[in-house]
Nucleic acid binder design. Structure first.
Lengths: 219, 219
DNA sequence: GCCGGTCTATATCGCCGATATAGAACCTAT
DNA sequence: ATAGGTTCTATATCGGCGATATAGACCGGC
C-alpha cells in the first residue's frame, strides 16, 4: 500500500476520484440521516460503487468513518479561522470557547462523531486540535497570567467547553442559555488572572454581563 | 393493553420472572461486552427465551435499553446514599461532584448509555436525577450563597461535572488528574460565595495550589 | 369441557458489515 | 505490440442483526 508510482496517471486519478466520491457520499448521508443512517450499502448507491470498492480503499467501515472525521476536523479548524481573534491571550481563549460551542451546536452529528466515539481512540486530527488549544493556553502562561500548569489548565478548559457543548447538543440547552457564559467564565476566571493593564475594570462581577440582550430567555 | 387482571396469579408471576431474567441478562451482557455487544439474540441465549418474548415484554430494543437505563439510574442514585454528605450545602455539592465522577469512572458503559444517548430523549429517571441536583443547588440559594439563578447554576454545574466525566471515560484523563479538582473548584467558586462563618480563610488564592510536586509531567 | 386472553416458540424477512472469487483496466518491460 | 504484474472494481455470498407473522401452549373463568 502506498507505493508511490512515479506517475499517478489517469488510472490513479480515477481511483482518487472514486475515493473522493465515497467520502462525499458518506458525509452527505451522515448529515442527512445521522450516524445510524450511514451504511455501506447506502454509500454505495449514492457514490455509484459497490461494497468491495469501499473496502479496498478504506479497509473497513470504522476506517472510513475515521476519514470522515478527519474532514470534520478540517471544518472544525476552519471555524476558528477567517475571523480575527482578540489579541489578548485570555480573550482569545474565550473567543475559542465560543467558536467551539458554535461549531458543536451547528454540527451536532459531526461533533458526536468527533468527540463522543464509543471506542475513543483519538484521531491524529483530534490530537492536532487539542495541541492548538494547548498552544492558546501556553500563550496565557507566557504572559504570566496562567494560574495552573499548562497541561492541567488545558484539560480543565477542554472539559468545560466539552461539557457545555455536549449538553447543548443533547437539546437540554438553547444556544443562548446563560449557563453557557456562566460555565465559560467560571473556568476562565479560575485559570487566569486579569492583565495588569486592564486594572481599571479590576474585578468586575465575576460573571460576564456585558452582552446586551441575552436576558429575555427564561428557562 | 394494560387491562389489569383481577388476580395476577402464578402465570403473571412467571411472566414477571421472565421479564426480570431478560433485564438481568441484558445488564450482564452490557457490562461484559459493551453497548455494541448487546444484541437481542445474545440476550435470548443468556436469558433462555426467544426473540418474540422480548418484543412482547418490551416492545423493541430501544425500550428494553430504556428499562436497563432505569436500573442504571437506580444504581447511580445509590452512589450518593450510604455515605454521609457534608452539612454545608456548598460542600455537599462538591461531594456530589466527586460521587458523580466516581460513578462515571467506574461505570463507563452505563454512563454513556445514560448521558450520551444519540437519540437523547431524557428518561424520567434521568429527569429525577437532575431534579435532585437542582435541589442541592437550591439549598445553596436558600443559604443566600448562590451567585446565579438556580436554573442557570444547576445547568452550569451539570455541564462541568459531565464534561469532566466524559473526558475521564474517554481515557483522556486518569482519575487523579489535577484538572478534575481544577474544573470542580472553578465552577463552585464561580457559582457560590463562601459562608460567613468561614471568613478566616477568606479569599484564598482562587486556585488550589496545595499539591506539592505536580510539575514533572511534561507532554 | 370448552374459550378467550396471556405468553412463548418456529420460521422467516430485509438489512447490515464484510469477503471470497474473479475479471477488467492500466503500467511496465521486453 | 504484447506478456506479465499490479491496481482497481463487480458478482455473489456469508453470518449476524432487529423485527415480525404465524401458530401453538398455558391459564383462568363460564
Amino acid at each position: 500500500m502506498g507505493a508511490p508510482s512515479p506517475t499517478p496517471g489517469p488510472r490513479a486519478a480515477g481511483s482518487e476520484a472514486t475515493r473522493r466520491a465515497i467520502l462525499d457520499a458518506a458525509e452527505e448521508l451522515l448529515a442527512s440521516r445521522g450516524e445510524d443512517g450511514l451504511s455501506i450499502r447506502e454509500i454505495c448507491v449514492l457514490a455509484g460503487v459497490t461494497p468491495p470498492t469501499i473496502y479496498h480503499h478504506f479497509g473497513d467501515k470504522a476506517a472510513l468513518v475515521d476519514r470522515v472525521v478527519d474532514d470534520c476536523f478540517a471544518a472544525f479548524d476552519r471555524a476558528f479561522e477567517g475571523r480575527t481573534p482578540p489579541v489578548d491571550p485570555v480573550e482569545r481563549l474565550r473567543f475559542g470557547f465560543d467558536r467551539y460551542v458554535e461549531y458543536g451546536a451547528t454540527h451536532a452529528v459531526h461533533y458526536r462523531l468527533m468527540f463522543q466515539r464509543p471506542h475513543g481512540r483519538p484521531t491524529p486530527a483530534g490530537l492536532a486540535s487539542y495541541d492548538r488549544l494547548r498552544r492558546m493556553v501556553r500563550a496565557i502562561d507566557d504572559a504570566g497570567r496562567l494560574l495552573a500548569p499548562v497541561e492541567d489548565a488545558t484539560a480543565a478548559f477542554w472539559s468545560s467547553v466539552h461539557g457545555v457543548t455536549s449538553l447543548l447538543i443533547s437539546g437540554f440547552w438553547t444556544r443562548e442559555a446563560p449557563a453557557i457564559a456562566l460555565a465559560r467564565d467560571a473556568i476562565l476566571s479560575q485559570l487566569t488572572r486579569p492583565s495588569a493593564k486592564s486594572k481599571k475594570v479590576k474585578q468586575q462581577k465575576p460573571m460576564q454581563r456585558k452582552t446586551k440582550g441575552e436576558r429575555h430567555g427564561g428557562t
